[in-house]
Design a protein around this nucleic acid. Structure first.
Length: 848
RNA sequence: GCGGGCGUGAUGGAAUGGUAGACAUACCAGACUUAAAAUCUGUUGGGCCUUGUGCCCGUGUGGGUUCGAGUCCCACCGCCCGCACCA
């Protein structure tokens, strides 16, 4: 009897699939299409278990859909632009392009042995000029429709390296390389006008029935629609004729609790004062220290500067409020100015306490007495409270009602107007870096900012660049910038900024439908293949990538690159959990962390005996080096074992901590299946009606349960059922024919997960053609219903006994049986039951 | 700080509001073997005693809704993800 040899089997069947061109996606009218897509990888150089998990899940769906008669599109590509390539060039020399393409070759080489049902003929990398040239064409079309424009935005500025830093490169407010204090500085940048679609992107979330509710909720909160009041405080003796400060508030009902007005350090008034007053300039400079992230700004110590200016309260001109410049007020939300109501906002409360400002409650809990506050009182807006300083509506009303009546009152009294605002900002796409898609723009002294001619695309990155000094190599390239103006033909300069890599990944799904078209898409192909029926990727992309992609689908429709049906490009989304692993690190002389790969760490020590610090269970990331190499598992046990293992241990949506312990067990199981099927194939046991029927029932139950698991992303549940069915087959005394039928079905049910082994067993058991193209087995409903069921009997909700009854026994009969049961008689002790609940086929509860 | 999620045996986890711990790992015991590996079989949440078709406790903590809560609601604790220049 032959042993299970993964290496032999896997190479053989991969070749067979390739010969049969089984996974090549071709448009065809005779089958329904199915487009399954996993988020494409960044070519870091090595695949890790997270990739294996992601692509195996997609592959299960793709193979299952193939078996259920679909025309499947399952492509793969590379999200190939980005910082790590430049960092590598700086750290170890070499060129980002060479580094990236060499990584892609390595990773493709690691992925192919996994036996994924991918149409490799559609592969591309976003750094291919063929791809990014079309992206430049899209940019020009977007610009044409007013969807791309320029304005100022703040960036992280490293004053020592004289360069822009990514948020990731700012550590505790300091530049990662120079260690200098980072400052926020304004630059002119390109933006996509995603804010035009705020309402639309929010409303359309309701149509995404097969998206996780949590993702939709996160996106809705991110878009952040709010209804509020915009109005002005009159400024007393403002500088340079400034006579008012516009504020926006979502809580106009708390206007009578106002105790100060705060403006952003970037507010025009602050900037005016900054020019005139050294103290203000000093304070604003202090506020601009640190990185640009919301997190950095919001967790920084709250600082205020009393400008000495005063404003009048809109309801009482005798009531004056001080004007502070405060570091926690963002210029790009609302008007960049707020009024503080310390009684009902904890941040304002802390601020008022610090600067000794009044704290006057506007409302108090219903039935309570007004009392001094020790912290802000911030009930949900849906809660009814008692207004003690209200000015519109009843004394007792909900916050929501009070806000609405306050807006009405203010509008009818000429104090501002109700407005709807969104938190979503326009998408800044300029990056002052080399390894990205060049923005196809020319700066001409006479014509200004002009788009490049489409026939000149792609604007290719120059190869001859150096990374020995910080900053963008395109800026210091001797000739690349020089060009002629597309409008007047005079000498002009190219834009040297490149695009955010999120742009690359915002339309790759569309490009896969026609990866080599000479326009961004081919409408006939897009019409056929769009939408992505199932998109699979990490929850970390819940907001940005998915929101940007939704915006791009709309923008591409307006510019004629996608059909209307693709307005929401992803019909169904599944967010897999992340693969986590411990992080191992030591410290360099300056105390900065140095990370180590798991394979270099044994028993908490490096090879030279140095003990490492261990950070438990963190997201696998190249930069932290807590990645695990699947190669070794594939070499030792085969791809099927790796695939089976990553699917079996954890629910797909949950994080999984990678451990080596399960791999061997997975291998043993596959070897066992191989053995069982081999035995079945050579069995000559005579038919046995009772045993045969029992095995067939188990088989149909397995078909039903495994199929249900695959369709609902319960791959771990499917695998548990496959274990149970394997045990049933192994133990069964059924006749040879039935056992062979069961073994064939087992192979088929396993085939999306372990395609190579399944092909081998299919052939061994005399299956027709390739299992990969065999029709998926159907469960016979009649074989799924048991004739008798075990009914647990609960007494006061606790299980105390059980009875076995025919599945279709009427409720009344069940009740009689239950009341006659010893345990029930004992519990009742002669009394009548208070209640008797019979849930047919499930449970009985007796309340005594 | 803000937004979102998760929390069940020694471990990964299962469980349309209906028998908590399926399925697996690990451990232990047994069979086979000169031995080991492999394989096969069986046990395993905690406690109590009267060892039973027994009782009590048990799904992060504390409350609540319900005939019945791991599941729904509220509060808290812990961990994870995102926060617009990491991808």
């Amino acid at each position: 009897m032959s042993r299970y040899s993964a290496a032999e089997i896997e190479a053989k069947w991969q070749e067979a699939w390739s010969q049969a061109e089984l996974f090549k996606a071709v448009r065809s009218a005779d089958k329904p299409k199915y487009y399954v897509l996993e988020m494409f990888p960044y070519p870091s150089g090595r695949i890790h278990m997270g990739h294996v998990r992601n692509y195996t899940m997609g592959d299960v769906i793709a193979r299952y859909k193939l078996a259920t008669g679909h025309n499947v599109l399952h492509p793969m590509g590379w999200d190939a632009f980005g910082m790590p390539a430049e960092n590598a060039a700086m750290a170890i020399g070499g060129h980002p392009k060479d580094w990236t393409y060499s990584n892609i070759a390595d990773m493709r080489g690691q992925m192919k042995p996994l036996g994924l049902s991918i149409d490799w003929s559609r592969e591309f990398a976003t750094c291919d000029p063929e791809y990014y040239g079309q992206q430049q064409a899209l940019f020009i079309d977007f610009m044409d429709k007013g969807l791309a424009y320029r304005k100022n935005a703040v960036v992280n500025w490293d004053p020592v390296d004289m360069t822009v830093l990514a948020n990731e490169q700012v550590i505790d407010g300091k530049g990662w390389r120079s260690g200098a204090d980072v400052e926020r500085r304004e630059l002119t940048q390109w933006f996509f006008k995603i804010s035009d679609y705020s309402e639309e992107l929010l409303d359309a979330l309701d149509t995404l029935d097969n998206w996780p509710a949590k993702v939709k909720l996160m996106q809705a909160n991110w878009i952040g629609k709010s209804r509020g009041l915009q109005f002005a405080f009159g400024l007393i003796d403002g500088p340079h004729g400034t006579d008012r400060i516009e504020v926006y508030t979502t809580r106009p009902d708390t206007l009578m609790g106002a105790s100060f007005v705060g403006i952003s350090p970037d507010h025009p008034l602050a900037k005016q004062l900054e020019r005139d007053t050294p103290d203000v300039a000093e304070f604003c400079a202090l506020c601009r220290k640190g990185g640009t992230t919301a997190e950095a700004i919001e967790t920084a110590e709250k600082l205020g500067y009393d400008t000495g200016l005063r404003v009048r309260h809109p309801f009482d001109t005798a009531w004056e409020l001080p004007v502070y410049i405060a570091n926690f007020i963002l210029m790009d939300y609302g008007t960049g100015a707020i009024f503080g109501c310390p009684a009902h906002d904890q941040r304002d409360f802390d601020f008022a306490t610090k600067y000794d400002l009044p704290i006057n409650p506007v409302f108090i809990p219903t039935g309570a007495e007004e009392a001094p506050l020790t912290q802000a009182f911030t009930p949900l807006k849906s809660e009814t409270v008692h207004y003690v300083r209200g000015f519109a509506g009843e004394a007792a009303q909900t916050g929501d009602d009070a806000v609405a009546t306050a807006i009405d009152f203010c509008e009818s009294n000429g104090v501002g107007q109700g407005v709807t605002k969104f938190r979503l900002r326009d998408w800044g796409l300029s990056r002052q870096r080399y390894w990205g898609c060049p923005i196809p723009i020319v700066h001409c002294d006479t014509c200004g900012v002009v788009p490049e001619k489409k026939e000149n695309l792609p604007i290719e990155l120059p190869y001859d660049v150096t990374f020995d000094t910080p900053g963008n190599p395109l800026d210091r390239h001797p000739t690349w910038r020089n060009c002629s103006c597309p409008t007047c033909g005079e000498p002009a300069l190219r834009e040297t900024d490149t695009m955010d890599t999120f742009v690359d990944s915002s339309w790759y799904y569309a490009r896969f439908t026609a990866p080599h078209a000479s326009t961004p898409t081919d409408m006939a192909e897009a019409e056929y293949w769009m939408n992505v029926d199932q998109y699979i990727g990490g929850i970390e992309h819940a907001i940005l990538h998915l929101l940007y992609s939704r915006f791009f689908a709309r923008a591409m429709q307006i510019t004629g690159h996608l059909p209307p049906k693709a307005i929401e490009p992803f019909n169904a989304l599944f967010t897999q959990g992340m693969v986590t692993h411990e992080i191992y690190l030591t410290r360099d002389a300056a105390g900065r962390p140095v990370y180590h790969l798991p394979e270099d760490v044994t028993d908490g020590k490096l090879a030279d005996g140095t003990a490492v610090e261990i950070i438990p269970s963190a997201k696998m990331s190249k930069s932290k080096k807590n990645v695990v190499d699947p190669d070794q598992i594939i070499a030792q046990y085969g791809a099927d074992t790796a695939r089976w293992f990553v699917l079996s241990d954890s629910p797909p949506e949950r994080d999984v901590e990678w451990t080596a312990s399960g791999a061997e067990a997975a291998f043993k199981h596959l070897a066992r299946v191989h053995r069982i099927a081999t035995e079945a194939a050579s069995s000559d046991t005579a038919a046995n009606p009772t045993e045969d029927d029992a095995l067939l029932r188990a088989m149909h139950k397995a078909i039903h349960d495994v199929t249900g698991g695959v369709e609902s992303f319960g791959f771990n549940a499917s695998i548990a059922k496959l274990y149970a069915f394997t045990n049933a087959v192994a133990k069964s005394k059924a006749g040879a024919a039935t056992k062979q039928q069961a073994a064939k079905t087992l192979a088929q049910l396993m085939s999306p997960m372990t395609p190579h082994l399944s092909e081998e067993l299919w052939q061994l058991l005399g299956g027709d053609g390739l299992i990969a193209s065999a029709p998926w087995p159907q469960a016979d409903e009649a074989m799924l219903v048991d004739e008798t069921v075990t009914l647990p009997i609960q007494i006061n909700g606790k299980r105390r006994a059980e009875i076995s009854v025919p599945a279709d026994m009427p409720k009344e009969e069940v009740e009689k049986l239950v009341l006659a049961h010893d345990a029930v008689i004992r519990a009742l002790d002669g009394a009548q039951p208070k209640k008797l609940i019979v849930v047919p086929g499930r449970i009985v509860n007796v309340v005594v």
